[in-house]
């Protein structure tokens, strides 16, 4: 069974925001106003630009402290990983796991997944387009959840202001981490998933169509 005809093969250009189909060569979607391109050829350069920006921010996000906690007269500084380890040692392994997954596993997994998708679109891949598309959907869906650590810092900073007893202040890593999450979200959004399927088309049935 051969796949369905694509809008490009039928001489149309489709809007990826509102799914409206226009005659090929139309510059802008007449319905929702989005600029139309049959395939976003600059997609990959934007993906890599945001990807690098995200990675550059992710490094200081892990090196600098996320939180500065002062209890009575002792001050402690926690990095992302350090804070999670401390939580695990203080008998909250489950929450430590959430933090580690959201702040370490998901961001690193995202960097690897986006890079691999971008490379596989260029070079081709043995992995089926279905599983690559699935991976893209997961990356797009899950990326936002990394923001949780920034929100935790925000909540703690607002809340734990108890004069002498205890206070919490944000560290520079909070900003770096937030930027890293935002940049990787933009990187994933810049990726044009139609490229995954085009390549598959070329690989499997290069025969004549229409």
């Amino acid at each position: 069974m051969s796949g369905p005809v694509t809008a490009r093969a039928a001489g149309f250009v489709a809007c990826t925001r509102c799914t409206r189909v226009w005659p090929g060569g139309t510059a802008q979607c007449g319905r929702c106003g989005k600029p139309l391109v049959s395939r976003d050829t600059h997609s990959l350069s934007r993906v890599w630009a945001w990807w690098v920006a995200g990675l550059l921010c992710y490094i200081p996000a892990n090196l600098y402290p996320m939180l500065r906690t002062r209890v009575l007269f002792t001050t402690s500084e926690d990095t992302i990983v350090g804070g999670a380890v401390e939580l695990a040692l203080h008998g909250a392994p489950f929450v430590a796991l959430i933090i580690l997954v959201a702040s370490v596993a998901i961001p690193i997994g995202k960097f690897v997944a986006i890079a691999w998708l971008a490379v596989s679109v260029r070079r081709g891949s043995r992995t089926t387009p279905h599983s690559r598309h699935r991976m893209y959907e997961i990356v797009e869906y899950i990326g936002r959840w990394s923001m949780i650590d920034v929100f935790v810092v925000a909540i703690l900073t607002a809340l734990v202001q108890l004069n002498l007893a205890a206070s919490i202040k944000p560290g520079p890593a909070a900003l770096a981490f937030a930027l890293s999450v935002i940049f990787t979200m933009l990187s994933a959004q810049a990726f044009d998933p139609r490229l995954i399927w085009d390549r598959a088309e070329d690989d499997t049935d290069a025969g004549p169509r229409a």
């Binding site: 005809v5 694509t6 490009r8 489709a14 189909v21 998933p193």
Partner: peptide
């Protein structure tokens, strides 16, 4: 064969893979 002749207003393209 004939989907290319249809008025584009009656079509829908998958935003993820461009299938028509």
């Amino acid at each position: 064969t004939d989907i290319a002749q249809v008025d584009p207003g009656e079509l829908i393209a998958c935003p993820q893979c461009d299938a028509l």
